[in-house]
Write a protein that binds this DNA or RNA. Structure first.
Lengths: 211, 211
DNA sequence: TAGATTGTTAATCGATTAACAATC
DNA sequence: TAGATTGTTAATCGATTAACAATC
């Protein structure tokens, strides 16, 4: 049903559709029109229909979309049914929060190991994981070929070096919290959370109002 | 020097320019051309010049841009010199991490109080803040008119109710970590961190490769 | 001055919106 | 059937890229 590559602007709207469909489904709603979805999401009805039709015709003319059907389709498109085995590197405060983050497993990621370089942290337990030495990273990945994703919650300074080691060891995706633009070969997917960039954007708009 | 409203796509590139300018300045670099900045950031030289010219002509023909000048200009544009007094609501694990986050003060935000609704947390110390009861929110804001920004690290369920109270009490900006689309009147700036949306995007691209 | 690089206008590209025929 | 709403094509809008005159 897919026709060529779907643009990233479209992809980044999908999670929002999915969020509202979960809500509608929980509320027991049966059907939804692009018009109603437009009122919820703030996107135009036209755009919503265009977006969804990148992946197939999920609606019925004259009726709209079945909530359960659309939700299930989005689940498949977003790859939620596939559980990606994930390791976390940097078991500091942020790492600990992420590790305990519920949305994580709901989105199809399962943490199977944690690593840190700090002797004081290695061996301690976070969630249900014993923190390992980052020195064991390569051996662990050799022994656990099912690991495909890494979360990086290390300081800016070490981030690229760790990313290089992960790539070398065969990682396929990185969820990066380090405030650094990681270099990775084509095919390795890097998804960044840039807290500072977000803050500076907030600062811009706050300041703009006073200018 | 500003000509009308600058589009959000432009604004969201500014923090990245700023990041690289800090780095260049730290390294002692004196000048940079749009071409060199293009190689660093991945944006085209043409786009960089267009972006910067929304705010003024900061370069010199035949020479390029002075690193120190451009960095200072971006600092002003992003509103970094203005320190916004900030309160944090939701002193759980994530709240604690955010509170200790260094980039926070560097970006021009200073946490002056923390609130939580959990009796077991109220009264405890996080960083240099004693956690207050969220019941005191309105009184605190009345007594501290200098507070302009709030960070929301509460569960999804309570987020909108807290946002409403903050708006009523005169807040101007919200940095929102709750996975919920907050309703706020025009003029109140809401900047969202959507961890789950980011994860689902990663999931999409990982899954796409296998399709 | 000659060479380099900006600032800015014009051309292109892609994304959004509008419109409507298809059809449930 | 008549009414409603999709799927899809065409029109519009905005963002990016290319080109080049201005000028340091």
């Amino acid at each position: 049903m897919r026709k060529g590559k779907v643009s990233e602007t479209v992809i980044r709207r999908l999670p929002k559709y999915y969020r509202y469909l979960i809500e509608l489904d929980d509320r027991g709603e049966d059907r939804i029109s692009s018009q109603e979805l437009s009122e919820l999401t703030g996107f135009t009805a036209s755009q919503i229909r265009q977006d969804l039709n990148n992946f197939g015709g999920f609606g019925q003319q004259g009726y709209g979309y079945k909530v359960a059907v659309l939700k299930a389709e989005l689940e498949n498109i977003l790859g939620i049914p596939t559980i990606y085995k994930t390791i976390l590197i940097g078991a500091g405060r942020l790492g600990t929060v992420i590790c305990n983050y519920k949305g994580f497993l709901d989105s199809g990621f399962e943490i199977v190991a944690m690593f840190d370089r700090d002797e004081r942290v290695i061996g301690s337990t976070v969630g249900n994981q014993v923190v390992r030495s980052v020195d064991e990273l390569e051996q662990f990945m050799k022994d656990h070929e099912e690991v495909e994703v890494a979360i990086l919650t290390v300081p800016k300074e070490g981030a690229q070096a760790i990313a290089d080691r992960l790539v070398e060891a065969g990682i396929r995706g990185i969820w990066n919290f380090a405030p650094e633009d990681l270099e990775a070969p084509e095919g390795v997917i890097v998804e960044n959370i840039r807290l500072t960039d977000s803050l500076l954007t907030l600062s811009y708009y706050l300041t703009e109002r006073d200018r």
